[in-house]
Design a protein around this nucleic acid. Structure first.
Length: 351
DNA sequence: TCTGGGGTCCTCTGTCGA
DNA sequence: TCTGTCGACAGAGGACCC
């Protein structure tokens, strides 16, 4: 069997770059795509804005303080989806197996391709020529190496690494460098005296297992060694869909919350009906003013999709929960989604 | 500093029927 | 009839990702 070869393609500052296509006069300036409300966060910042310390997921208020001269744009996801479709058309032409992740990333299985590097160079050029958007590419023996490699020299990066080279190059990096190890897990590892990927790889498994459990411990060590055998899979089944809203100001009044919930249910169900999907589990999500998040759910005997069916269940869950403190976020979710094959095909075209 | 929106996956716990 | 066990499933919370 041929040795696996996987590429990860990551668009550079995607939302900002797409905005700059239609507003070229902003090129070279610190551009920040962020929501508009008082609790909005930064979606993407241009590399110029990043020099001021602005980064993704940062509160927009803070970004404004750090970079008062920044150009703030409200996100336009319809436009970004269209741009993503243009990019992914090029990507799908370049390999047989492509796994699209979000709007701006994809894995390509290049196993068996005679000249994978040249093929990826051509792909980057084609994307640039046909969409005016730049990307970074990582190539490796698995998705994990490819992913970290694509991130290593952004923007316009092109990094090819074996697993051993990845271990050597990133061994001194913090554990959170690899996907799957987030801030919480990294903090727990630091508490054990494990600061780097090399230290994690060398840590006695029993010691990790006592803290994280045997499964997670094994998983963490595999990641630290850049071992990954997950396939590049084209199929991404949607299993739930939700709508949620963070309020500009916390709401403590139950009737007002019920009104908002009704509107969220309407939005969610309208989407489900268009997709010809329905689900059995109805859930609500409530985030209180102390940022604690609570969920309540009920599974019905039959899958439903209309607001007439979802609404009363969601309302009852909210009334039963009876938020004990002011609410900052309210959401509704339908899970256990079922849909016709036709609906799946349709969705593939949309995404 | 004060934390969006839309998802997936994992773990733990409780319940229920065989 | 009662009790213990086991697996499946549901519910809740949390971590993580883009």
């Amino acid at each position: 069997m041929a040795e696996r070869c996987v590429a990860h393609l990551d668009m550079d500052a995607f939302y900002v770059s797409v905005e700059l296509r239609r507003r070229p006069e902003l090129r070279g300036r610190p551009v920040i795509v962020a929501g508009t409300g008082p609790r909005a966060v930064v979606t993407t910042a241009s590399y110029e804005a990043r020099r001021f310390g602005v980064g993704s997921a940062m509160p927009a208020v803070r970004a404004r303080r750090l970079c008062p001269q920044g150009v703030f744009l409200a996100p336009d996801f319809t436009y970004y989806r269209d741009a993503s479709a243009e990019v992914m058309t090029c990507v799908r032409d370049a390999a047989e197996a492509v796994e699209v992740v979000g709007l701006d990333e994809a894995y390509l299985d290049l196993t068996g391709l005679p000249a994978p590097r040249a093929a990826m160079r051509r792909l980057a050029l084609r994307i640039e020529q046909s969409t005016s958007l730049g990307c970074s590419i990582g190539i490796g023996p698995n998705k994990l190496v490819a992913k970290v490699a694509s991130d290593a020299e952004k923007p316009r990066g092109f990094v090819v690494l074996s697993r051993e080279q990845a271990c050597q190059r990133f061994g001194a990096s913090g554990c959170a460098l690899v996907p799957g190890i987030g801030p919480k897990t990294a903090e727990r590892l630091r508490a054990l005296g494990i600061d780097t990927l090399a230290a994690l790889a060398a840590a006695p498994n029993a010691r990790l297992a006592s803290s994280f459990g045997p499964r997670l411990a094994a998983e963490l060590q595999q990641r630290s060694r850049f071992e990954d055998d997950t396939p590049v899979s084209e199929e991404r089944k949607v299993i739930s869909e939700s709508r949620e809203l963070t309020f500009d100001e916390d709401i403590r009044d139950l009737p007002r919350l019920e009104t908002v919930l009704g509107a969220l249910v309407d939005r969610l169900c309208a989407a489900l009906v268009v997709q010809q999907r329905c689900g059995r589990t109805i859930g609500i999500k409530v985030r209180l003013d102390d940022f604690s998040t609570h969920t309540r759910a009920r599974t019905l005997a039959e899958a439903v999709s209309s607001a007439d069916q979802v609404g009363p269940v969601a309302l009852e869950l909210l009334r039963r929960f009876a938020p004990p403190r002011p609410v900052r976020l309210l959401g509704v979710r339908v899970a256990g989604l079922e849909g016709s094959a036709a609906a799946d095909e349709q969705l593939k075209l949309v995404l």
